[in-house]
Simulated scan of single mutants.
Amino acid sequence: MLDLAPYACHPAATRGRRYPETPAPTRTEYQRDRDRIVHSTAFRRLVYKTQVFLNHEGDLFRTRLTHSLEVAQLGRSIARSLRVNEDLVEAISLAHDLGHTPFGHAGQDALHGCMAEHGGFEHNLQSLRVVDKLEERYPQYDGLNLTFESREGVLKHCSRQHAQQLEREEPGGVGARFLRREQPSLEAQLCNLADEIAYNAHDIDDGVRSGLITLAQLQDVPLFDQYRAAAQAEYPDLVQPLLQRRLLFEAIRRMLSAQVYDVIDATQAALARHAPTDVQAVRQSPSLVMFGDAMRARSLELKQFLFKNLYRHPRVMETTGRAQEVVRDLFAAYTASPQEMKAAFAEQASVDCGPLRARAVADFIAGMTDRFAAREHERLTGRRLFD
């Protein structure tokens, strides 16, 4: 028996699926969503899609798959304390990056530029396209036929133009909240914040592992350094060079725990202030899942540090440039010669030479792993941009 708060998403009260299905005898609707996501092709591809460091740069750096698992773990931990639906949080967490391009944000930015005349490219909207249309697993319909609540959580951000398009296709559906200026469920809000907590922490780890940032530099980041100092005071031997990795891990562990507890405390306080009685009241309230003011300020300082010292590091920027070149070259090649794509995408691209072809090309590229995109680029251009 689920011990859920009144403001949580109760699976028996789901707004349902686009194509009605008989309930499963042993699983709730959100458990079914999670299972469909885990078994999807797009989910498996995440293991070879990059976070900050490209897939060929090392075996131990985070990928979209490991990131999604970390978001799910953090999300479930917080969800249990708030008595919201853990299964829905897990489903959204595992699906939230399914629409990401190869080569991380570099690939996304390049593909958005290629699609500028055809509505652009938004990875959140692409994640929805994956679960609604692009997965091909069932004889009755395209996509995974997830519940409304999981689909709503996947669509974290959406431009007004795209929300209006979604509303025309599905009146009162997942695009409506952006037009009504409503919030998503608490479970979706929680996944958004767990995403931020996860990538800040693992980007510190990967940044130090890569040698692009150092523990000495991180002493200028209060959110991290207070836990580094506390760990070092408790375990003085960690100052030894061979134990520096343990010091890093312990500091990150403490930082993560502090952020989780802060979110729980701040969110419980917000719930007490606004007292939502059900999911609809949550939607009409301000965002309720949050950091406290002090933690939010320290988290912002950490993000600014990572942006300056890691994401804009010359080595990262150099690979970013090559990654964007790959995506732009692939887009141009497939647009000119759609037959070079896999058959299903080539068939869609043959409908016209305008927006439908461009969207089919974008769908094909967005679904690629880093290494497949690099191989395709070499095949089509004769140039190898990555060793």
Rank of each mutant, 00 (worst) to 15 (best):
residue 321 G to R: 15
residue 79 A to N: 12
residue 205 D to F: 12
residue 163 A to Y: 06
residue 103 F to I: 03
residue 203 D to H: 04
residue 164 Q to D: 04
residue 273 R to N: 14
residue 257 S to F: 09
residue 171 P to A: 04
residue 373 A to M: 01
residue 182 E to Y: 14
residue 199 Y to M: 03
residue 30 Y to E: 07
residue 196 E to R: 09
residue 196 E to I: 09
residue 156 K to H: 14
residue 204 I to K: 05
residue 342 K to H: 06
residue 269 A to E: 13
residue 358 A to M: 04
residue 360 A to K: 00
residue 246 R to Y: 14
residue 283 R to V: 05
residue 212 L to W: 12
residue 358 A to Q: 07
residue 136 E to D: 12
residue 51 Q to F: 12
residue 150 S to R: 00
residue 54 L to N: 07
residue 195 D to C: 08
residue 326 V to I: 15
residue 256 L to K: 00
residue 149 E to M: 09
residue 203 D to W: 02
residue 297 A to G: 03
residue 339 Q to C: 11
residue 14 T to R: 04
residue 41 T to P: 05
residue 14 T to V: 04
residue 173 G to H: 02
residue 172 G to E: 10
residue 132 D to C: 13
residue 24 A to F: 15
residue 269 A to I: 11
residue 385 L to W: 02
residue 285 S to A: 14
residue 317 M to E: 14
residue 147 T to Q: 04
residue 221 V to M: 08
residue 274 H to V: 07
residue 129 R to E: 05
residue 163 A to C: 13
residue 278 D to R: 12
residue 113 G to T: 07
residue 377 H to Q: 10
residue 290 M to W: 05
residue 107 G to Q: 04
residue 156 K to A: 13
residue 387 D to V: 08
residue 202 H to P: 03
residue 88 L to M: 10
residue 57 E to S: 14
residue 122 E to C: 10
residue 318 E to W: 11
residue 250 E to V: 05
residue 188 A to G: 09
residue 213 I to R: 03
residue 386 F to P: 01
residue 72 A to S: 12
residue 6 P to L: 14
residue 88 L to G: 05
residue 364 F to H: 15
residue 328 R to N: 05
residue 151 R to I: 01
residue 106 A to G: 11
residue 191 C to D: 13
residue 365 I to C: 00
residue 143 G to L: 02
residue 324 Q to N: 04
residue 187 E to G: 02
residue 203 D to A: 01
residue 343 A to K: 11
